[in-house]
């Protein structure tokens, strides 16, 4: 499998998970939240300073359809991570072979 093909398949898988499948993810509290609730420290949690972000809590502000709103937030987040991490690793990598890019 070529590099390009491998990367495209991986990216499509990530986008499908974040954009489509995540709608079906479990809505139960995660392990930490559940333990906090049961042992009694959940109410010490404070609202995040980013609570007003247009993508806060994996919902896109202004998009009412829940499936679309969550999917857009997931796809946007995935692409932002890809750009930031990809850019960082591109800068950090050892330049190899004369086949400079």
């Amino acid at each position: 499998m070529s590099n390009r093909r491998f990367l495209v398949i991986g990216l499509v898988a990530a986008l499908l998970i974040a954009g489509v499948a995540s709608f079906y993810a479990s809505a139960h509290p995660d392990g930490l939240e559940y333990v906090a609730q049961k042992t009694g420290f959940l109410d010490t949690a404070e609202d995040s300073g980013a609570a007003d972000s247009p993508l806060a809590d994996y919902q896109t502000k202004g998009v009412d359809n829940e499936r679309l709103s969550g999917g857009l937030a997931g796809v946007t987040g995935t692409l932002v991570v890809l750009l930031l991490a990809g850019g960082l690793f591109f800068v950090l990598r050892r330049r190899g072979e004369p086949e400079t890019e």
Partner: peptide
């Protein structure tokens, strides 16, 4: 990281982000 593995590393970060949404 080199020319070959740097793009994979970017993809892994994106994939982990997506994976973390799948409770």
């Amino acid at each position: 990281l080199d020319d070959r593995t740097a793009p994979l590393a970017g993809l892994v970060a994106a994939f982990v982000f997506a994976g973390q949404m799948m409770n």
